[in-house]
Structures are given as C-alpha cells and as structure tokens.
C-alpha cells in the first residue's frame, strides 16, 4: 500500500502536468484507500491470469500418483491435491477461469440489463409496464435456483455457465438502471434531442445510455464479485465447468471436502482465493459507488 500512497502524493505535486485520467485515479487513490487496495488486488489477479503460463511452476493438469496429497513443501508451495496435481499451479490457472466467467457473465448480464432498463424507461407507458412485469417474474426466482435451472436446461460447460450466471443478473441491473434513466428521460436535452427529430435508437444509444454509465459500472463490479461466487457455488454443486479444468470452485469439491481434516491445504487455498477475489471486487465496487453515485441502492 505504501507505494500507492507515495505515488499518490508525488502525483499530487505534479498534478498539473498529469493527464486527466491519471488525476482522476490519483484522487480516487487518496480518497478511497480501501477501494484502491481492492483495485490493486484485481489488477494483480488479472496479471496472474494473463501470465499463468509463465509463472505457474507446473502443468495444472499433470497428475503424479506417487505424490498424492503432499503437504505444502519446497517443491510444491501449496501442496498437491488428491491426484498429485500442484495446487499453486491450479490456483494460478484457476484465476483465468474465474475471471473469464466472471467478466463475461457480468458484462453480459449488466449490459443487457442496462439496455432493457433504458429502453423501458425511455418508452415508458405500456412498454415499460410489460418489461417491468417480465423483470418481476425473473426477479422472483432466487438467484441460485435460476442459475441451477438454466444449467439444467443448457447443460454444463463454460459458455452455458456464463449464460446461467448472466440470466438472473439481467433483471437486477435493468431495475437499477431504469430508475436512473427515468430521471434522465425528463431532462431538457433529451426533450431537445426529440424535438430535433432524432430516432429512438439514436437517443437511446447516444444520449441515454452514456448517462447511466455510473450505475452501470457499479452494477458491473458488484456482479463481478457475485459471478465469481456463483461460479464457485455451481462448480461446488458439480454444475459448473468440468474437471480437469483448473477452477477454484471445483478445487473445493469432492476430495477437498472429504480430506478437509487430513489434507486441509487442498481446500483452504482455493477457498482463500475465492474470498480474496470477491473481497477485492466488492471493496472496489463499494468505493466506486461512493465516488460516482452515493445514492444508488443495490
């Protein structure tokens, strides 16, 4: 953290010479130390995911039946699992799965949700009424049940897990974005755009959507945290990605639970990885909301 603070104060001195985005970042870093530490953790996770090929000490799929369930040691820093696979390597590669699914699912869910929300607010009247009732229907299924049902219909596999997580998120985002968009709809410049005879599509995409960026971004980070957790839960229930793919939720399943007492390292490290990731996204998301739109309720 020290480095961040030092950088922040140095930046403050040279603020005038800094480009605008850097000034924004430095202000965020000064005002929201918690959020910044979250952001740093997220960046770190991203780096690990990208560089997994270079930094992982072993092939995450390579089994070693002579080295099953080795406790952490010099050779295997975090020990090995029930098939003699290196846990550290699987954790590093697992960040890929978590980020890939987390990012795609929350991006998909939040974006579709935002569009639906804006469209609903823009057209108002009957369209709004119908869309809102549809969203109510989707909302009234508990999140995990909805995800379970979608996986059951589509089957397992990375793509389907992404959809399963995105579907229940869509109405949640739609609802939040709609309430922000309702206010924008009433603003003079939208009236002006309409008076100028712009088409619905242009007004929605060029004028309204950019103005709901704040709630959209906030929802996105919150969803990211939830998506990582949901992916882990689905994998834990056996409905996420399949073995032998390295995924944190999968690492918590089966042998990790069975051997929780005899070989606790098999479950503790992936559990910590999930918590750290979700923690980081939540910290960041919270601070982002404080900074961008403190009144937003999610």
């Amino acid at each position: 953290m020290n480095t961040v603070e030092v950088t922040a104060s140095t930046i403050r001195q040279k603020a005038n010479t800094m480009p605008r985005w850097l000034r924004v970042v430095s202000r965020f870093a000064r005002q929201k130390p918690l959020g910044t530490s979250g952001a740093v953790l997220i960046l770190l996770m991203g780096l690990v995911a990208i560089l997994a090929d270079f930094i992982a000490p072993y092939d995450p799929l390579a089994t070693r039946y002579d080295l099953m369930m080795q406790p952490p040691n010099a050779e295997f820093w975090l020990g090995t699992d029930a098939f003699g696979r290196d846990i550290l390597s699987r954790l590093l590669y697992g960040s890929r799965t978590a980020l890939l699914i987390g990012l795609s699912a929350s991006f998909l869910g939040a974006t579709i949700g935002a569009i639906i929300g804006v469209v609903s607010a823009y057209f108002a009247g009957k369209t709004d009424l119908i869309i809102q009732r549809l969203m109510d229907m989707l909302l009234s299924f508990p999140l995990i049940i909805m995800a379970l049902a979608v996986v059951a219909v589509l089957g397992t596999g990375t793509g389907n897990v992404i959809i399963a997580i995105a579907v229940p998120m869509t109405p949640r985002c739609a609802r939040v974005v709609r309430s922000s968009a309702l206010a924008i709809r009433e603003s003079p410049y939208i009236d002006a755009a309409r008076a100028l005879g712009f088409g619905h599509g242009r007004i929605i995409f060029r004028h309204m959507l950019p103005n709901v960026m704040a709630p959209y971004l906030i929802m996105l980070t919150v969803f990211l945290a939830q998506a990582i957790l949901l992916e882990a839960s689905l994998s834990f229930l056996g409905l996420g990605v399949s073995e032998p793919t390295a995924a944190w939720g999968l690492m918590l399943r089966g042998a990790a639970v069975e051997f929780a007492e005899q070989a606790p390292w098999m479950g503790i490290f992936p559990g910590l990885a999930i918590s750290a990731a979700v923690f980081a996204f939540n910290l960041f998301g919270d601070s982002l909301r404080d900074a961008l739109d403190p009144k937003l309720r999610i």
């Binding site: 918690l34 957790l229 918590l252 918590s275 750290a276 979700v278």
Partner: peptide
C-alpha cells in the same frame, strides 16, 4: 466495511463446512 465485505466474500458453503 472490511468485516462486512468479508461476509459477502466467504462462500457460505465453505463457512458451513
């Protein structure tokens, strides 16, 4: 905040186990 976010970040099945 750290205490409460930690609550969100711990998978409930893991906490239970």
């Amino acid at each position: 905040r750290i205490f409460s976010i930690a609550g969100l970040a711990t998978p409930s099945f893991w906490l239970g186990i």
